[in-house]
């Protein structure tokens, strides 16, 4: 992957520091000019913990000056996400029932419904390019949470992840299925290929997952995010598959979404009942963050949907 174009003086100087290999220059950065400038910078700092950039020294991942910059950006992001959340709902009975009910109650605009019914092929391609930022890293952020969990939740998360990563068969690894879908559509399946045109809402959606995954303190949010993601996946993936079929677009991409209809009907049960519930039982102090992570997942997807529906002149 290559560094993207900067989106302000802050990301420009940060990228210069990354390229120079001398992280001390990052200690004198100006503040970010705009939300996009900050979000792109944070996305790239996180990338050092995934696949990295060809032109950046891998050792910079843990350079103290860059960790300090990342920390500042993460604090801003976490404050913003928490300020959008109104707190966990009160409920009687068990967590799983309350969680599924809360996700069902959530009403947001649906990009999948738009794709199913009326999106043009160009609009679908644009959406898939933006989605590629995460789907080519599918399940990677939450993988960082594995060693931070109590026994029952850890075993169940590994069972889910084993399926996400193809059950030992690379050709079934979900991120790879998405890459094959992109290639079949004539799109670039290289990671970060569409980073330059990725909007703020999508960058923030990605950054939230990395934030939750990379901090042990936020393991509850990481798993709550996972549970909400899985619990809102089967239906929308079926709609995406139908939209791709309506437009006669590559069957390989349709196969990616069809796989998720079935896989995520399993994963939502695992994530809610066998991962989050045991986590909360073993570590009750994580429950607030489970709900916070779930809310953030739904809210960030709403923002992405608003961005595209507004851009395409559709009312949400």
């Amino acid at each position: 992957m290559h560094l993207p174009k900067p989106r302000g003086a802050f990301s420009e100087q940060l990228f210069a520091a990354l390229l120079s290999g001398d992280p001390t220059t990052a200690a004198r950065l100006p503040g970010p000019e705009a939300a996009e400038d900050a979000a792109l910078a944070l996305w790239c700092l996180y990338e050092l913990s995934y696949r990295g950039f060809e032109e950046v020294d891998d050792r910079l991942e843990w350079a103290p000056e860059l960790v300090a910059v990342r920390r500042g950006l993460e604090d801003d992001l976490e404050d913003r996400l928490r300020s959008r959340w109104s707190g966990r709902p009160a409920y009687d009975g068990d967590f799983a029932t309350a969680f599924f009910a809360a996700v069902e109650r959530h009403e947001g605009p649906s990009l999948a419904r738009f794709v199913q019914r009326s999106a043009t092929a160009d609009q679908v391609m644009e959406l898939l390019q933006a989605r590629s930022l995460y789907h080519l890293k599918e399940s990677d952020p939450v993988a960082f949470s594995v060693p931070r969990l109590p026994v029952a939740a850890r075993a169940a998360l590994m069972e889910l992840q084993y399926d996400e990563y193809g059950g030992g068969r690379p050709e079934r690894l979900h991120a790879h299925l998405f890459a094959e879908g992109l290639a079949a559509l004539g799109l670039d399946a290289t990671e970060g290929a569409y980073l330059d045109q990725t909007p703020l809402a999508v960058l923030e959606q990605n950054n939230a997952m990395s934030l939750f995954g990379l901090h042990r303190r936020l393991r509850g949010a990481s798993l709550g995010h996972l549970a909400a993601f899985e619990a809102t996946s089967s239906g929308p993936c079926r709609r995406m598959a139908r939209g791709l079929e309506r437009l006669a677009l590559a069957p390989e991409m349709r196969a990616y979404y069809e796989e998720h209809v079935e896989a995520d009907a399993v994963h939502e049960q695992l994530a809610v009942r066998l991962i989050c519930q045991p986590l909360i039982e073993a570590e009750p102090e994580t429950e607030d963050d489970v709900w916070f992570g779930a809310f953030s997942c739904l809210d960030l997807e709403d923002r992405v949907a608003h961005h595209y529906l507004d851009r395409w002149g559709e009312s949400a």
């Binding site: 599924f100 069902e104 996946s233 089967s234 239906g235 079926r238 209809v261 079935e262 995520d264 009907a265 399993v266 939502e268």
Partner: peptide, 11 residues
């Protein structure tokens, strides 16, 4: 729609 497997329709 994908019996015998669940596809989330129960919701």
């Amino acid at each position: 729609a994908t019996k015998p497997w669940c596809d989330g329709t129960h919701k």
